[in-house]
């Protein structure tokens, strides 16, 4: 049934029904051949290039590779200055850190949904699972019994001292200062990390089976060991890292536009503090535009103006001349 409605013919929207000829075309054969061609290409590429599989960084490998970086990160988890501790929603409540678009902050609006308390979850909790070290138990009791200001003084003394820490005969040595029980705590935590016990403790905080690596990943990402590796592999955000892959493999090249905005002003300058939300919103708008191309005046005329179609359908136009 054809419903006729008077409407001006718009060449970028309308066509007249095809009155020309039809010719045999074997769609089933086309699909089978296309599948076989793809299969041959995929098998060939897989044989020739394989796929990358760089080993995951564990807290164990990190702390063994760089004890000092681990200890320096651990104290920031305890004193609440690490990137995770200062992240804000959805992990914790921190004032004025949520990104905003205009006056509107979606992450603050949604609030804390995946609670992470770095001091408790990353330091004190795991240490409390160690029951065979009387020295550690005493240190923890002393720390927990102290006033918040006393805790803060110890933490800040340690944070300063650990900047000059060294490794002697494979043992972490932090210059002496008035850091009270914190020295023993971080030392024990480093030992725990190096043994692999901290990895297990982080994943199994609530369950026997682990499928959620949120806290472990946040922990590892807070250290410089992990970010240095990523930067060395050209994977950082400012290096178009989003579309890159480890080694010489092609990556998610289709994310080029998403990655692009992070490289240019004002996203790298004035808008930098809110770059994530601004780029995300911009990409949502552009995605909607892509979907709505058939309705966007101007954009939908580009094909006609560009005249690329004269090449695509050149046999058709040749036949009409």
């Amino acid at each position: 049934m054809t419903k006729t409605k008077e409407r001006r013919f718009n060449p970028d929207r309308d066509v007249n029904p095809w009155k020309g000829g039809y010719r045999p075309y074997d769609i089933a054969k086309e699909i089978v051949i296309c599948f076989v061609v793809m299969l041959v290409l995929v098998v060939g590429l897989a044989i020739v290039f394989g796929s990358p599989d760089d080993k995951a960084v564990t807290i164990q490998t990190w702390s063994n590779a760089n004890q000092v970086d681990f200890a320096q990160t651990a104290i920031t988890e305890l004193d609440g200055t690490s990137a995770t501790a200062q992240y804000g929603p959805p992990y914790n409540n921190v004032a004025d850190v949520s990104q905003k678009i205009g006056p509107f902050s979606p992450e603050a609006l949604v609030g804390v949904h995946i609670p992470v308390n770095t001091a408790q979850d990353f330091v004190i909790g795991p240490l409390e699972t160690v029951t065979n070290s009387p020295v550690l138990t005493m240190a923890l009791n002393q720390f927990n019994a102290a006033s918040p200001s006393q805790q803060a003084n110890w933490e800040s003394a340690y944070a300063t001292a650990v900047q000059k820490a060294k490794v002697f005969h494979n043992v972490l040595v932090v210059p002496l200062a008035r850091y009270g029980p914190v020295g023993i705590m971080i030392r024990q935590l480093t030992d725990m990390a190096r043994s692999g016990a901290l990895d297990t403790s982080m994943i199994n905080q609530d369950h026997f089976y682990g499928t959620d690596y949120t806290k472990s990943l946040l922990y590892v990402a807070d250290g410089t060991y992990f970010s240095d590796q990523g930067t060395a592999l050209h994977l950082s955000g400012g290096q178009w890292g989003m579309m890159n892959e480890t080694g010489n493999f092609p990556g998610q090249a289709w994310l080029w536009l998403y990655s692009f905005w992070y490289q240019i002003p004002p996203f790298t300058t004035a808008w930098e503090p809110n770059a994530d939300i601004l780029v995300s919103v911009l990409m949502m708008i552009l995605s909607v535009l892509l979907i709505l191309v058939p309705f966007v005046p101007g954009v939908r005329s580009i094909p006609r103006w560009s005249r690329v179609y004269r090449l695509i359908w050149r046999d058709h136009y040749k036949g009409r001349e």
């Binding site: 990358p52 592999l233 178009w240 080694g247 010489n248 493999f249 092609p250 990556g251 490289q263």
Partner: peptide
């Protein structure tokens, strides 16, 4: 291909050869 990646730099554009 599991070797240090090769990259092309051109102004703010930085892209892997792959």
């Amino acid at each position: 291909l599991t070797k240090p990646g090769m990259y092309v730099h051109w102004g703010f554009i930085q892209i892997s050869v792959a």
